[in-house]
């Protein structure tokens, strides 16, 4: 095929082609160039915008991008305060970054499914997936950072001993510690897993929906395409929001004692 898109007369091949990443390397050492490239471009855009705005902030007359970023920041900060009871720069920054970043990455889904792979195909790439969050690696990677930070804060705030006691004594008391341990382990591991997989699942489904619409004859596409785009706009924003809220929740919970849950 050498970069050209497969004919939509073969639906299975078409979809499979679209769901393959531009992967470089083999096995564990492989990385998805497309996912990383797009997420870096979008993250870079956020950082660049943030740098431009943050360099000359206006107290009296904030304009344009500063207004938007201020609004996001205050929204996130309010959320952190309502959950944790106080401001927290680390959690707030992570939540803000994750919201903006995931929102942009999700928005890539609204770009026509064939456009970017076609452009990439012109440059010689056989596969190209434009939506990083529809690649399980990306959301799970982010969730993994949240998980690592959760562990870090749990141990730092509560101390290793206290944290282990939570594993052993809840919810059934110390005498059932093996059950407690297993349950708590599942609970803790389920957090990042559900966090990442929820985002991935929603965006994957969205992408699949667009691919299915793209398989229809071109004169049928506008109606279901528009409907799915509008519906998916909700999903895009909602999933970015949920990912942010859960990030805040998990990290805030790590800051609180067990009694405060």
């Amino acid at each position: 095929m050498s970069g050209l898109l497969p004919d939509s007369s073969n639906p299975v091949e078409y979809i499979q082609h679209h769901l393959a990443n531009l992967s470089i390397g083999e096995g564990f050492w492989a990385f998805h160039f497309d996912t990383l490239l797009i997420s870096w471009l979008l993250g870079g855009a956020i950082v660049y915008a943030g740098y431009r705005v943050g360099r000359n902030l206006s107290i009296d007359r904030p304009s344009g991008m500063q207004n938007i970023l201020e609004a996001v920041l205050e929204f996130v900060d309010d959320l952190v305060r309502s959950v944790l009871g106080r401001g927290h720069a680390m959690i707030g920054t992570l939540a803000m970054t994750v919201f903006l970043w995931v929102l942009l990455m999700n928005t890539m889904d609204i770009i026509p499914v064939d456009l970017i792979p076609w452009l990439a195909g012109m440059l010689g790439a056989e596969h190209f997936r434009a939506v990083p969050t529809a690649d399980p690696q990306a959301p799970l990677g982010m969730a993994l950072l949240v998980f690592v930070l959760m562990l870090y804060y749990n141990i730092r705030i509560k101390g290793f001993y206290q944290y282990m006691m939570e594993f052993l004594t809840h919810p059934f008391g110390i005498w059932l510690f093996p059950i407690n341990f297993v349950m708590k382990l599942i609970e803790e591991v389920a957090k990042p897993l559900s966090l990442g997989l929820r985002l991935f699942g929603n965006l994957f489904a969205g992408e699949l929906g667009f691919l299915l619409v793209a398989l229809l004859p071109f004169w049928v596409q506008p109606v279901p395409g528009t409907i799915w785009s509008l519906f998916h706009l909700l999903v895009v924003v909602l999933q970015a929001f949920i990912f942010m809220v859960l990030t805040v929740m998990y990290l805030a919970l790590a800051h609180m004692g067990h009694d405060e849950h």
Binding site: F28, W29, A30, F31, H32, L36, Q137, L140, G141, V148
Partner: peptide, 10 residues
Amino acid sequence: NLTLFGQLAS
């Protein structure tokens, strides 16, 4: 694979 950790670091 490595993408996961790349994304984590990013």
